[in-house]
Amino acid sequence: MTLSCALTFDFDAMSVWLGSYKARNPSMVSRGEFGAIAVPRILDLLKKHELPGTFCIPGHTALAYPDIVKRIRDEGHEITHHGWVHENPADFDEAGERANIDKGLEALHKAAGVRPKGYRSPSWDFSERTIKILLDYGFSYDSSLMGSDFIPYYARIDDRFDDKTPYHFGPNVDLVELPVAWVMDDFPHFEFVDKDTYGLSASTKVEEIWTDEFDYAHRNIPGGLFNVTMHPQVIGRGHRLMMLKRLINTFKSRDGVTFSTMGAYVDQWRANNPLDKWLKSGAPQAQNACGRDGL
């Protein structure tokens, strides 16, 4: 069996500074503008290697740079929902969280006429309602949770947890989770945000980490997904883009490796692992199917 590799790019632009960091300083917000400089470079790289990419785009970014979003679409790459302005869903009540989903969908449709089937939460934050809301909107998959590394699973609803009682696992639902990890994200490795993130790592350090993660998955997780998260305003710097070029060549040199969008991978994985069959498979995340509530 093969290992699939998903090259994913969170095209946050100014929204991450406005939403996550609540910045109103023109200098800090301007850091996001480099994302629009970097995306064409990334698209050229993907085109050179004939590789698909997945671009996770907030609605705010789509309205700021509709021509770039159209180019992403026109060159055959996947576009997923990434919030409205990189907001934390847990900061809103249910009506507010749904309104942000609506605004993101409307902006992506206005900019490029797309209706994403995938979702990635800004900064990978969830509320206790997020999975149910994603189901209501008909999303096929999410890529925000961290319950595995290279092995997809069906998400759960209604988990209950505190520091005094045993963890309660809720039922799995028909939303495929493509797990993520901060170690597989370029932002904490490379970015500098005072009093928050002190990255600025050498690209060779990150290249070593990602290559070793890839080699582990390649040797041990047949059929898995190597899911790496990058941000154009981060990875698009010259020395980091050179690192990405080297990584692509390394990944392509391994036997049995394919490159896929997250959406295409999910379609194949879901066909091979329908929910009822998966629940009987003994997967660790299928807690409700293991009768744990009845112990």
Rank of each mutant, 00 (worst) to 15 (best):
T211H: 08
H81Q: 11
T250H: 14
G147W: 15
R240W: 07
F9I: 03
P66C: 07
A38D: 05
S20H: 12
G113V: 05
D162Q: 08
D196C: 13
L178H: 01
S15I: 08
H168Y: 15
S27P: 11
Q287A: 11
F214I: 10
L178A: 09
R246M: 08
A181P: 00
Q233M: 14
H231Y: 01
R24E: 14
R71P: 04
H109L: 15
A286K: 02
D67I: 00
G53P: 04
S201W: 02
I37K: 09
V16P: 07
D142A: 08
R237K: 04
W84S: 02
E207Q: 15
R219G: 05
P179N: 11
A112R: 06
I37A: 13
A202L: 08
F139Y: 05
D93G: 09
Q233W: 13
S253W: 06
F187H: 04
D276E: 13
Y198C: 11
L135C: 06
V69W: 01
V180I: 09
K22N: 12
C56E: 03
T54A: 09
V176G: 05
L295P: 10
W124L: 10
A181F: 12
K70H: 08
F251V: 03
T211F: 00
N100L: 09
G19A: 15
V29R: 03
H49R: 15
L247G: 00
I248G: 02
P166K: 10
K117V: 07
F161L: 03
H168P: 08
H168L: 14
V173R: 02
G223H: 00
L134R: 10
S148N: 13
S281T: 09
G76M: 03
M262S: 09
P171L: 02
D293A: 15
G263W: 06
G32K: 07
S148H: 13
E207L: 13
K22S: 13
G113H: 06
V39F: 03
P166I: 06
K103M: 12
D102H: 12
D255S: 14
L7F: 12
L18G: 08
